[in-house]
Design a protein around this nucleic acid. Structure first.
Length: 813
RNA sequence: GCGGAUGUGGUGAAAUUGGUAUACACGCCAGACUUAGGAUCUGGUGCUUUACGGCGUGGAGGUUCGAGUCCUCUCAUCCGCACCA
């Protein structure tokens, strides 16, 4: 009978469903593997990126299940987010209805791929039960002081009508809709991720060799730790007077305290409180004031493009060591969000300060030796630096920090580029932030017994404003503390909050889902995730947030895990004609159509064969045909198998081609452990199986065929599970799928070994020698075979690489 | 600018980590079977040369009996961050 994928695949999918074949055991003593592919957003249909992600994850899960591990391989839905609301606006569908019907459809698609997911642990993050526990965590974080509400400058996406976290701004644009992000002052909720910055940074070392370097470096840079001196500039008496006595001094941060004697001016951000005060009280020239307001309205990117620009604020401060009076400017390159929004400027030793000083004719004073020209940003001996002159930079940094600390005017400190995580979103389709605004009690957390605070179903989504805020009744509530009338918070949580703890939810036995958010014992057993698979685009976003959440939940006592994802594999994108597949470009391949035409096994085989998982995968229709051909051929060769179990083969009875076929089969077997546990190069394992099948085809020994198929089906089952299981059942009663197969070394023993003969570093000829031949014999044979090239030469060195080659180094006589 | 990667046939890619470069697959060429085929099977396929041979892993050096692999320099492409004081 010919290979009929749809019949075989339906049959096994039904059987697996019936057998509940992929549920992990409740026993927490067995050795375990937690295999996790990043869960999908229920956008409506699977795309090839999903197929690749889940094909990789499934191969791991099935491989380890076979080795008798208790395997947790769950799936769920990252279900909150803007697209559901966009669907509501565009097609008038309720976000909830849209989301859950998408999930139903996509669940079927996943099923049709034969993925070995646990069915009992599936959930959607928009399930009220999930929201309930998430809200509990949020309240705990508030109680611990890790969550706070403040009004500050935020990134605002007008098209999504919401605030974005720093991590969600890519080159000044919204990560989701690519609209330009504006700066806006408004209140919001923040998680104190900076409190964990040091641990997040230090623990990256635990992930070395287990996560891609690229991701580790990106996180390190994103956290952006730098150490230096923080000190205060005291305003001159006239300046204090000008500011109406409202300001005495302000703080600056520098990583180069060794250049402190080179300070010739100070610069404030346009957002700095002093700049703001001057503006608000009309203390600046109106033209200057106007310019500064213009800067305020620009994004950081626009400011960078503009070039250095600034204005003298007519203020002076006292240099803390020299007592000199130095001018205060405002400058567009000073960031409001970092280091207090003010800098000391050392034009001689900082490129930006130099450019600015040159433009505005401010003095430039060299205080570090070295370099031919200014600015010189390297280190060296200090000059013109009072008692620190002649000291080296590194030493001077420490000494100067000490000096500040002794005088009580500054201190050594650490700064981070990382900003606290803004988690408020002004959208409907998210988890409500469980707080209440009370006139007398202020900001109050909801009572835990009132959770979940669920979304109202009757909502109008127009795309204008915040739907929860616009809802006529939902926000009216009573204060959980004093019982007075109060207003419910109408912001919802960033969807990245949900994906920050889902790995713990899966690990929690679903029998306990009603009682707890995370079960400690379950979590400690299953976590960390032994293999996490997903796209590189989450290198900062999700992967940083999830690491942070893991540490916070640990400190809140929910579990004892430090790092959520033990090993990370970042898969490459799926490309077509060199570009990422996307609907707008029209270069997509529909997984459903692919499965219908060739079957799930072919789709899976191709995605794993066409490229190693970390690399980009270029789509190729005819290569898909090739994968299909291989499966057909494999299926066809079942007729070659005569036995029903692994035969004992007398190696010496075989002819050369059969021996070679065995070698190829066992080479593939040998390779498989490496591939599944170390290199993840599924493409090479598949190639090895193809070679083995080609070699088997060249011979006709039934026992060698039986053994070959027995082993190959075992190796291929994680990749092409339907056809492999079908054949295993028919031929071997599935006996070959469970066992860990052992490599038989005798297979690799050969009658003779082919040695390459190199003379003078060049490949010249080959000799065939007995495996037991001594080096002398091999050399003699090599010299005889290579006599032609040895004429007129003397051999100066003889090298024999066992089993490989002979190299004779020669020179003319 | 800083950081991370990657450069191997016409294409996707291999190479047991210093030991026969291009396995496997696609494509292409030829043949077989066919009324025919875009089905299937067989063979061939780095470049160059009539041949012997020579040349070939982005480029230039170096170490070594031997380099895709190690070292130095360099070029190109991709990704991330980007005025972080």
């Amino acid at each position: 009978m010919n290979y009929n994928p749809s019949q075989i695949e339906t049959k096994w999918q039904e059987k697996w469903e019936e057998e509940q074949a992929f549920e992990p055991s409740d026993s927490l003593t067995q050795k375990k593997k937690y295999i996790l592919s990043m869960f999908p957003f229920p956008s409506g249909r699977l795309h090839m990126g999903h197929v690749r992600n889940y094909a990789i994850g499934d191969a791991f899960a099935r491989y380890y299940r076979k080795q008798d591990f208790n395997v947790l391989h769950p799936i769920g839905w990252d279900a909150f987010g803007m697209p559901a609301e966009n669907a509501a606006i565009k097609h008038g569908r309720h976000p909830k209805e849209w989301t859950y019907s998408n999930i139903d459809y996509m669940r079927k698609e996943l099923n049709a791929l034969g993925l070995s997911f646990s069915k009992t642990r599936e959930f959607a993050t928009c399930d009220e039960l999930y929201t309930k526990w998430e809200q509990e965590f949020i309240i705990k974080m508030f109680e611990e002081g890790l969550l706070y509400r403040e009004s500050t400058t935020v990134n605002w996406c007008e098209s999504c009508h919401t605030v974005l976290a720093n991590e969600q701004v890519e080159e000044g644009c919204c990560w989701r809709c690519d609209n330009e992000v504006q700066l806006k002052e408004m209140p919001g909720y923040y998680l104190d991720i900076i409190k964990y910055a040091d641990e997040l940074l230090d623990d990256l070392s635990l992930l070395e060799g287990k996560w891609p370097n690229q991701v580790l470096t990106m996180q390190e840079n994103w956290i952006g730790k730098s150490q230096g001196l923080e000190f205060e500039f005291e305003l001159s008496p006239e300046s204090k007077a000008k500011l109406g006595g409202n300001f005495e001094k302000y703080t600056v941060f520098t990583t180069r305290p060794d250049t402190i004697y080179g300070v010739t001016y100070s610069a404030l951000a346009a957002e700095h409180p002093i700049t703001k005060y001057l503006l608000e009280n009309n203390l600046l020239d109106s033209a200057v004031a106007e310019k500064i307001v213009t800067i305020t309205n620009m994004t950081e990117i626009e400011r960078a493009k503009e070039g250095k620009e600034g204005y003298d604020l007519g203020l002076t401060v006292i240099h803390p060591l020299t007592g000199e009076e130095i001018p205060v400017w405002t400058a567009n390159f000073v960031l409001g969000s970092y280091g207090g929004g003010a800098v000391m400027a050392v034009p001689a030793h900082d490129e930006r300060d130099f450019e600015f000083a040159t433009k505005y004719h401010l003095p430039i004073k060299r205080v570090i030796e070295g370099g031919d020209e200014l600015p010189y940003t390297g280190t060296g001996k200090l000059i013109d630096s009072n008692r620190f002159s002649c000291v080296d930079s590194d030493e001077a940094k420490i000494a100067i920090i000490n000096e500040f600390e002794e005088r009580g005017v500054g201190k050594g400190t650490t700064n981070y580029k990382l900003r606290n995580w803004g988690i408020s979103r002004q959208r409907y389709w998210g988890a409500p932030i469980p707080f209440v605004h009370c006139d007398s009690c202020g900001l109050v957390a909801e009572k835990v017994e009132n959770l979940p605070i669920a979304l109202p179903e009757d909502v109008e989504i127009t795309g204008k404003g915040n739907p929860l805020d616009n809802h006529p009744t939902w926000k009216h509530c009573v204060c959980p503390k004093c019982g007075a009338e109060a207003t419910r918070e109408t912001d919802t949580l960033d969807t990245f909050v949900q994906s920050s703890w889902y790995q713990f939810r899966y690990a929690t036995n679903p029998k306990k889902w009603e009682e707890v958010g995370i079960d400690k014992e379950d979590a400690n057993y299953w976590l960390g995730v032994d293999q996490y698979i997903g796209g590189i685009e989450h290198a900062i976003l999700h992967l940083l947030y999830a690491r942070f959440f893991t540490k916070v939940l640990r400190d809140l006592g929910y579990h004892d895990i430090d790092e959520p994802f033990e090993n990370l594999l970042t898969q490459g994108m799926v490309l077509m004609d060199g570009a990422k597949m996307s609907k707008s470009k029209g270069n997509t391949v529909d997984p459903d159509a692919l499965v219908e035409k060739y079957g799930a096994d072919t789709a899976r085989l191709f995605t794993l064969f066409a490229a190693p998982p970390a690399k980009e995968l270029e789509w190729n229709d005819s290569a898909v045909e090739g994968a299909f051909r291989f499966i057909k051929k494999l299926y066809d060769r079942k007729s070659k198998v005569t036995g029903t179990m692994l035969p004992m083969i007398e190696q010496s009875s075989l002819d050369k081609v059969s021996k070679l076929a065995r070698v190829k089969v066992y080479e593939a077997l040998q390779k498989s452990t490496d591939v599944y546990e170390k290199t993840f190069a599924f493409n090479t394992l598949i190639a090895a199986c193809m070679e083995a099948l080609n070699a088997l085809d060249k011979q006709d020994n039934a026992e060698v065929w039986t053994e070959g198929m027995y082993i190959m089906l075992n190796l291929l089952e994680p990749i092409i599970p339907h056809v492999a299981t079908e054949l295993s059942e028919a031929l071997f009663n599935r006996e070959n799928l469970g066992a860990i197969l052992k490599v038989k070394e005798e297979v690799f023993e050969q009658d003779s070994i082919l040695y390459m003969v190199m003379i003078g570093g060049k490949k010249r000829t080959e000799i065939e020698v007995d495996p037991s031949a001594a080096n002398d014999e091999i050399l003699a044979a090599a010299k005889e075979a290579g006599a032609k090239w040895l004429e007129g030469m003397t051999v100066v060195k003889e090298i024999v690489v066992p089993g490989k080659l002979v190299n004779l180094a020669v020179k003319p006589i």
